[in-house]
């Protein structure tokens, strides 16, 4: 495996991990996820492109505006696609979020346009440097660093701030959290907002590596779900590590067998891993009392 492939594997892996953290935060608090997390990621990339390239906003403004809108999208998903179903004790939120993803992808298709776009070259992709003998683009370093930095920030937020701790409290015992005066409904909204935010960040970061189109997120989202599940979905570090493992496994399989076998082998490994560890590689069984 070439060093460059390794770097890309880590980069993609950290993005899987970041997207999977979006599954994690909502699942931990509400036992629901935005199943169309991939389309939220796409939204981040598409909005940034539209603001920065089509409308010519300064890059930082474009990024901040896209992130704000992705966060808002997370809130909309919770309100429209999750809450009505959870209220009536139905699992149909899964289908509803998928439907919202389809709607979002198609709205983007007709507003953003049908043809895939590419981010214009930036110093992040052109100012390559050499590390030993390997040509490295700054972006390849920025992606994993940003991914891990966000995971660390999430950890800091949840353990060091009042509202972060409140979120952890809801995760561990919603009723007891209510008794502490924590608004659980609001906490759930916050997690969906966070999940939208993470997806947006992932979308913006991989946009220069990837091609921006309304369908760019679909497969990415499914892989991220696999990562979240493998990581044990209720364990933030497990999810991030599983992301890196997944990215590296993909890179390794592509190097050894060619990319045609990447999906067969990785998904087969997912099945095997879950058969061996039904609660994910880093998850713990939930104890059910009689």
């Amino acid at each position: 495996m070439s060093a460059s492939t390794l770097i890309t594997g880590i980069g993609l892996g950290s993005m899987y991990g970041l997207l999977a953290l979006g599954f994690y935060v909502t699942y931990a608090v509400s036992r629901t996820v935005n199943f169309a997390q991939g389309s939220a990621m796409m939204l981040g990339a598409v909005l940034t492109f539209s603001f920065a390239v089509t409308w010519g906003w300064p890059m930082w403004t474009a990024i901040l505006a896209s992130l704000a809108l992705c966060t808002a999208w997370g809130v909309v998903v919770e309100r429209v696609g999750v809450r009505p179903f959870v209220r009536r004790g139905s699992d149909a939120w899964l289908m509803a979020t998928v439907a919202m993803g389809i709607v979002l992808e198609n709205v983007v298709l007709f507003t953003f346009g049908k043809d895939p776009r590419g981010m214009p070259p930036s110093p992040l992709t052109t100012e390559s440097f050499y590390l030993a003998d390997i040509k490295v683009q700054p972006l390849q370093v920025v992606i994993p660093v940003a991914g891990i930095a966000i995971a660390v920030a999430l950890h800091w937020f949840s353990h060091r701030t009042r509202h972060g701790r409140a979120l952890l409290a809801v995760v561990q015992n919603p009723d007891a959290a209510r008794l502490m005066g924590i608004d659980v409904t609001a906490a759930i909204v916050v997690t969906f907002a966070l999940s939208g935010l993470f997806a947006g960040v992932a979308g913006i970061l991989i946009a220069p590596l990837f091609i921006i189109s309304s369908t760019m997120g679909t497969l990415f989202g499914i892989k991220a779900f696999a990562v979240a599940i493998l990581g044990g979905i209720t364990n933030a570090w497990g999810v991030m590590v599983a992301g890196l493992v997944y990215g590296l496994a993909e890179a390794l399989i592509t190097s050894l067998l060619g990319s045609t076998y990447t999906h067969i082998v990785t998904f087969a490994l997912v099945i095997v891993a879950l058969a061996a560890r039904p609660h994910g590689l880093f998850g713990r069984a939930e104890v059910k009392k009689v």
Binding site: M1, S2, S4, T5, T8, G9, L12, I206, L209, F210, L219, A251, T254, S255, G258, S259, T260, T262, H263
Partner: peptide
């Protein structure tokens, strides 16, 4: 050979 969604074709 490569796939439609491959990001990295360096291998």
């Amino acid at each position: 050979k490569f796939e439609n969604n491959d990001v990295d074709m360096i291998p």
